[in-house]
Simulated assay, not measured.
Amino acid sequence: MDTGEKLTWQNVTIVAIGFTVTLAAAFTGYYKYRERSYFLLQTADAIEEEANAFTLGVGACSDFGPDQEQEALKLFTQRVEEHRNEQRRRQQQLDQPADQASPTAGSSPT
């Protein structure tokens, strides 16, 4: 920021642009927008897959007949809630500072 004796509009503009880029990089690094959107898209895809399986009667819902719609709906709801809980867990891990994140952040519970 040392501009010498002259404080021209070019020097002020360069400093302002540098500060803006630094501030934008800090926000994107802190809030982790890319990871958040990736995990949200992954969860949305998994829920859509469950909905398609329920509608078409395939996958986990293939064991249920037409007269067992309530049981299939219960299984569908349970599986969707599992996906939502997994998303919440990932979101909480992203909210933690890097030095407090658990070393097994990438593993899923079995």
Rank of each mutant, 00 (worst) to 15 (best):
T20I: 12
L73K: 03
Q87F: 07
V15T: 10
D63M: 12
V80Q: 05
T20P: 08
A101E: 12
S108Y: 01
Y38R: 07
E35V: 01
C61N: 08
K74N: 09
E49F: 03
I17N: 05
Q100N: 11
F64H: 09
I17E: 04
T3Y: 05
E48Q: 03
T110I: 01
A60D: 05
Q70I: 14
L56D: 00
S37W: 00
E69R: 15
F19A: 13
S108L: 00
P97S: 10
F54A: 14
L56M: 07
G29W: 06
E81V: 08
Y33L: 05
A46P: 01
Q70H: 15
T43N: 12
G4L: 09
E69I: 14
H83I: 02
R84D: 07
G4P: 07
T55R: 11
Q42Y: 00
S102W: 12
Q100A: 08
A98Q: 11
D2H: 05
P109A: 13
V15A: 15
E86N: 13
K6N: 06
D45K: 08
D99S: 15
A16I: 06
T77K: 13
P109V: 07
T3G: 11
G18R: 01
T104F: 13
Q42W: 00
K74G: 07
T28R: 02
R90S: 10
E49I: 03
K32P: 03
Q93Y: 12
T20M: 11
G29V: 06
A26V: 11
R84S: 11
I47P: 00
R88S: 14
G57S: 04
Q78S: 13
S102I: 13
G106P: 01
L7R: 03
N52H: 02
L75P: 00
S37R: 07
A60V: 04
K32Y: 06
P103E: 07
A60H: 08
T3F: 08
Q93A: 15
G65W: 04
L73E: 01
D2G: 05
T104K: 12
L73S: 03
Q87N: 15
Y30R: 06
E86V: 06
L94D: 09
V80C: 02
F64V: 01
G106A: 02
G4S: 11
T110K: 01
T43K: 10
N11D: 10
G57C: 08
A24S: 09
V58K: 06
K74Y: 04
A105F: 05
E48K: 03
D67V: 02
Y31K: 11
F19G: 14
H83F: 06
Q87I: 09
S107M: 14
V58P: 00
E81Q: 15
